[in-house]
Structure formats: C-alpha cells, structure tokens
C-alpha cells in the first residue's frame, strides 16, 4: 500500500520541472446559479506543469477536477511534517453571465457585480497520520475583494493496486462571513426582479474525491476521477443559488515529459 507523505515530492536539486500534455473529457456540475448554466462538458486539452526552484513551487492543474494553480514556498520540511506559505484560489468566480464570461448574459443575474476569484495567501501545514497525509490550510483573500478567509482541512491517501494508483481525498472548507457574503450576498444595488437583498453568513463545504492513474505506456498515463462537494445550507438561502452541490467527473490520457 502506498502512503501519502509529507516528504518533498521532488529531488533535492535546485530546480525541477514536469510538464504533462493530454486530452481529457470533463463533466462539471457547479452549484446552480439562478437562471445560469451550471453543467459543462468538454473534451479539452490538458496542460499541467510542476515547477520547483529551491523552496518555491508552482503546480497548475488545467484538466482534472476544478483546475487552478498552487503557488507555494516551503518554510519547514521535517520528517513527517511540513509548513508552506501558499497562494491559491478557493472559490469559482461568476458574473451576470454566469460562471463563464463568454456565456450570454443571464436575465436573473443582470446587474450583479462581478464576483472575482479570490487571491488567497496563507499557511499550509502537512502532517503524516498513519497512511494518510493530513493538510490544514488557513488563508486570507489578500489580493481579492472579499476581505474574507478560508480554513481548509483534508486527508489524502494513495492506494497502490499493482500498477494502478487510487487516490482518495476528503475534507472540508470553512468560509468566513466576509468571504461567503462576497460571493453569495446580494447588495441593495444588485436587487432586481429575481434577486432580493441578502446577507450571507459564514459557510462550509465537505468534499470527497478519488482519482485513478494507470501507466498505459512509458510516458503515458490514463486518469479518471470523481469529485463531489456539498455546501452547507446557508449558501442555499442566497437568492443567487439554487443548489449547493457540485461534482466533477473526468477521464483522459496525458503525456508526461
């Protein structure tokens, strides 16, 4: 059985990189915004990069799960635990066009201000717990507009099943009232025929994810994954959203350079 580990995942040399290119089918269902499209399917190119220079690292994920990037700096690396400074995004942006700006304007959302993606900075603490790697993150939306913070906790384990990797990841997020209200509150200036004024309280989500990887040939990997996230009831009270459920299913192949 494999175990997730807080040891550095790269060599101790100064610079490492890894680039993956592939094609993935991704089906995403996001929390339903009133009147807006919330399910998306695509056969999309995947470009993933892992860069590490000394203690800095950048990981981008364009093809699997919800995408995004991780930028970090390893402050402490010890046997069994570590502490990083991290930069990342914890909420998906949306506007009166829905989740993606190239969609048509949604009449139910007309007049709302753009909810820009958070630009959060904070700390991530890693700790081996038996066969699991536990991660606790506390970040503040420093460069975004929410003035809120997010507490994230998760556990990851890798099961090595012959040549297959089966990753299991589960955890929860807690969003401060400011953070939640920025995305799901409705200001008086945004009120329209469909939206009433609303102040969102704090919120939470729980999630479970799994991913299968298999080496189909040298440098080629097949992957498939499923991610499910459920939000707390408070978010559903917002007139902006009709559901607090999200999931992603993906499958595809990638070439690893």
């Amino acid at each position: 059985m494999g175990r997730a580990d807080a040891e550095p995942w790269y060599d101790e040399d100064d610079f490492d990189w890894q680039l993956s290119l592939g094609a993935f089918y991704v089906n995403t269902k996001l929390p339903s915004l009133i009147g807006a499209k919330h399910e998306f399917s695509s056969l999309a190119p995947l470009i993933d990069a892992k860069l590490r220079y000394k203690n800095f690292y950048l990981n981008t994920h364009s093809g699997d799960f919800f995408g995004g990037s991780d930028l970090g700096y390893q402050l402490v690396q010890r046997d069994g635990w570590g502490l990083d400074v991290i930069f990342g995004n914890y909420q998906i942006p949306f506007s009166e066009n829905g989740y993606y700006s190239n969609d048509d304007k949604v009449k139910e959302l007309e007049g709302i201000k753009e909810r820009k993606v958070d630009q959060s900075i904070g700390f991530a603490y890693y700790q081996n717990v038996g066969e699991y790697l536990a991660v606790v993150e506390l970040v503040y939306d420093v460069f975004g507009e929410s003035d809120g913070w997010v507490f994230h906790i998760e556990a990851t384990r890798n099961f090595e099943l012959r040549n297959w990797d089966l990753w299991l990841n589960f955890g929860a997020n807690y969003y401060s009232q400011n953070f939640n209200d920025y995305f799901y509150g409705v200001d008086p200036s945004e009120v329209n025929d469909y939206l009433y004024g609303f102040t969102a309280g704090d919120g939470a989500t729980a999630f479970v994810q799994t991913q299968l990887n298999y080496p189909i040939a040298q440098d080629w990997v097949y992957s498939a994954g499923l991610s499910v996230l459920v939000g707390s009831g408070g978010v559903k009270s917002s007139p902006l959203v009709e559901s607090n459920y999200a999931r992603v299913v993906f499958t595809g192949v990638k070439y690893v350079f």
Partner: peptide, 14 residues
C-alpha cells in the same frame, strides 16, 4: 512515467 513519486499533492477545490 514519473521520475519522482508524487508524495505531496494538493487538491484544488473551490
């Protein structure tokens, strides 16, 4: 496929 084992992995969510 990979020279190094992906031990530490962050799972991006929203």
């Amino acid at each position: 496929v990979h020279k190094v084992r992906a031990k530490k992995r962050r799972w991006r969510l929203f």
